[in-house]
């Protein structure tokens, strides 16, 4: 399962970004490992940032998005996929993963998350 969390910077210690299309980075969590996705090209688009970000997320094969809000256009792109979306306002990336992991049937503790960083 691939989880994408919108983030203000390239590290998982950077803070959660409540914007979806205009988020500079996404932290991707898969098989207990983290990597980051640089979304700045999409985020800086003059128009349609939500659509192009959603397209990148779909192309990456993401299963779950955790973000603050999803605009109407990005929602339309995501709606026709199998991607699950969780809206959140927790300030850190790790807190967000811990919060939603049980709903996704994942057993994650702060330790496992740290160890596999």
């Amino acid at each position: 399962m691939k989880i994408a969390i919108s983030c203000k910077g390239p590290s998982i210690d950077d803070s959660f970004d409540s914007h979806f299309g205009r988020a500079s980075y996404f932290q991707i969590f898969e098989d207990n490992k983290w990597h980051s996705f640089d979304n700045r090209e999409n985020a800086n688009a003059a128009q349609g940032a939500g659509i192009s970000t959603a397209q990148s997320i779909i192309d990456m094969g993401v299963d779950v998005i955790i973000t603050g809000s999803l605009g109407p256009k990005a929602s339309r792109v995501i709606a026709d996929s199998d991607i699950q979306v969780f809206l959140s306002d927790l300030p850190s990336i790790k807190e967000n993963l811990l919060q939603f992991a049980p709903k996704l049937g994942l057993s994650i503790t702060p330790e496992t998350m740290e160890a596999k960083k």
């Binding site: 128009q47 397209q55 256009k73 792109v77």
Partner: peptide
């Protein structure tokens, strides 16, 4: 088509291509 469009007016998912006329 999605790759070509400079205005992010198209998106592609498994159901096909969606057009955003306003963009």
């Amino acid at each position: 088509c999605v790759k070509f469009c400079n205005y992010n007016a198209l998106s592609l998912n498994k159901k096909g291509v969606t057009v955003f006329p306003e963009l």
